[in-house]
């Protein structure tokens, strides 16, 4: 039964509305469109995969995974405090031990002080039953991608990892980054653009008087940050 479902062409569809058939290049459009896009743009008939954004847990796990930091250990508990130790009493206190590389499913859910990363991405309120999580797109999520400690740390790991691959040249490193983040190799244009971007950032950092080795690492970190902030990373296409 599962085999039947998983191997079906319906299940294997992508979310793209583009067509590979040049015959679908309609007048006035700049790219060939699947007829479905014209007949059923709302995708009521499931002619294409319904794109979805990653859930809060998936966002965190994906960030840790692409940077090679995700700890896949199974079982056990991350709760090390004493009984009632997680409930802020008086005076006001907060829980800040979310710093773990374990999968999100093992992170404590502290009702009184929920992990901010989860909160930012529509994690359901753990104090009330909820049948469905809405998916909102709000600026704090973008702020998270730009400024959070988690993203800053993981992109640095990813950059260090890429630069540590002495068997690869820079073109190969861009390919690795794309494959890890998007599951596909970059086009030549994308590779060229990424490398130009790294050079540009190195120039900017030179002006900020950053040491050469650190400059290179931070320029690649910048590229990684963009790759992971992009829509292609956070959506299942």
């Amino acid at each position: 039964m599962h085999r039947l479902i998983l191997l079906s062409s319906t299940y294997q569809q992508s979310a793209s509305g583009a067509s590979h058939d040049p015959g679908h290049w309609y007048r006035g459009h700049d790219w060939p469109r699947s007829p479905g896009l014209l007949v059923d743009p709302d995708n009521r008939l499931h002619w294409r995969w319904q794109r979805r954004r990653l859930d809060a847990e998936e966002v965190r796990d994906a960030l840790l995974d692409v940077s090679g930091q995700l700890d896949l250990a199974m079982g056990g508990s991350l709760m090390q405090g004493s009984n009632r130790g997680y409930v802020p009493g008086y005076p006001n206190s907060s829980y800040d031990h979310y710093d773990s590389r374990r999968r999100s499913v093992y992170l404590p859910v502290i009702r009184s002080d929920l992990y901010r990363v989860f909160q930012a991405f529509d994690f359901a309120d753990p104090s009330t039953p909820s049948g469905e999580r809405p998916t909102t797109t709000v600026a704090p999520q973008a702020l998270f991608m730009m400024n959070s400690k988690l993203v800053l740390e993981q992109t640095r790991h990813l950059a260090a990892d890429l630069l540590g691959r002495s068997d690869q040249d820079d073109t190969g490193r861009v390919r690795l980054a794309y494959e890890r983040a998007y599951g596909r190799p970059p086009t030549d244009a994308e590779t060229g653009r990424a490398l130009a971007f790294v050079r540009r950032i190195e120039g900017l950092l030179q002006r900020e008087k950053v040491a050469p080795a650190e400059r290179r690492l931070r320029a690649w970190q910048s590229l990684c940050r963009v790759i992971l902030a992009a829509n292609e990373f956070i959506h299942v296409d």
Binding site: S16, A139, D237
Partner: peptide
């Protein structure tokens, strides 16, 4: 980021969530 997202959007077809997310970075 904007360039990459625009490119992705072009291929993905019209999508309000994708557009909204592009705008959210500028807002942020």
């Amino acid at each position: 980021l904007r360039e990459m997202n625009q490119e992705h959007l072009t291929k993905a077809g019209p999508d309000q969530a994708l557009e909204g997310r592009i705008a959210s970075f500028e807002l942020a």
